[in-house]
């Protein structure tokens, strides 16, 4: 049983359980909505996880790299925060992708898949925002912290990893939570490059009967996902907190 089959089994099971408690117009298309939500969650988890590491690297580059690293890191944030996510998706999928298999060669399997392009663009986009959020967090730390760490014999990398970044993350966490919710909403745009995420599935269901409640169901599902993310983020925030306001 492959990964895809497991996902389908999960959504069939969820729909079987929800069958009697949900409106008939939802139950009829339930597996589609849940299939879609699973794709959205999958994209969200992967892009926020990978994006966090890229973002941390970019943030460190912004504050402690040499001049060329600094400008590169600045350009990364500037370009990917300064252009609409939809434009980024279309440039990569329809623009670069139209070069075709012959010109893209070994990169073709990546460009061929809407899912892979969607994941990559969401990751890069969120990494640019995370970099700015973490840079803001790093800026709140007094310079004495870094000096103290170095005078204890830590290297620059160790000081960053052990002393500065953990504190920056603690300060930046609420802002990061906000970015995660924005990323969730932005992920709906991948439906325009043929990915069957929650939005993609919703639009297909809508096409079957033009029932306005279709989008309402989808909105409720996005809200539930946002609620779940908020609770998760709060849990982490509580763990990170030391003193201060509740």
């Amino acid at each position: 049983m492959g990964y895809q089959d497991i996902k389908y089994a999960v959504s069939d099971a969820v729909c079987l359980l929800a069958q009697d408690t949900t409106p008939a117009s939802f139950a009829k298309y339930c597996p589609r909505y849940i299939d879609g939500i699973l794709v959205t969650v999958e994209l969200l988890l992967l892009s926020s996880f990978i994006g966090f590491f890229i973002g941390a690297l970019v943030a460190v580059g912004r504050v402690s790299g040499g001049p060329s690293v600094r400008s590169l890191a600045w350009a990364w944030s500037y370009v990917f925060r300064g252009t609409p996510l939809l434009v980024q998706l279309w440039i990569v999928y329809f623009g670069l992708g139209s070069l075709g298999e012959e010109q893209l060669g070994v990169l073709w399997p990546f460009f061929k898949s809407g899912w892979a392009v969607g994941l990559a663009v969401l990751t890069i986009n969120t990494s640019a925002y995370i970099a700015e959020i973490l840079r803001g967090g790093l800026a709140t730390l007094p310079p004495g912290q870094y000096e103290a760490a170095v005078s204890c014999g830590m290297s620059r990398g160790q000081a960053m990893r052990r002393i500065l970044l953990p504190q920056a993350i603690r300060v930046a966490w609420p802002a990061y939570g906000n970015e995660l919710i924005l990323l969730m909403k932005g992920s709906a745009l991948v439906s325009t490059i043929t990915v069957m995420d929650l939005m993609g599935q919703t639009r297909s269901v809508f096409a079957r009967g033009y029932a306005m409640e279709t989008y309402a169901y989808s909105a409720v599902l996005y809200l539930l996902l946002a609620l779940f993310l908020t609770l998760l983020l709060k849990m982490v925030e509580r763990r990170l907190r030391v003193g201060g306001y509740p």
Binding site: Y8, P31, R32, D35, F94, G97, S98, L99, G100, E101, K112, G114, T192, T194, M196, G200, R203, S204
Partner: peptide, 23 residues
């Protein structure tokens, strides 16, 4: 079926472009 490899496009022109590109 709803779980086959069916790609849906917003316009006919976009889908013809993907056929040409070999997606």
């Amino acid at each position: 079926g709803t779980r086959g490899d069916l790609r849906l496009y917003d316009t006919t022109t976009a889908s013809f472009a993907d056929l040409e590109a070999g997606r």
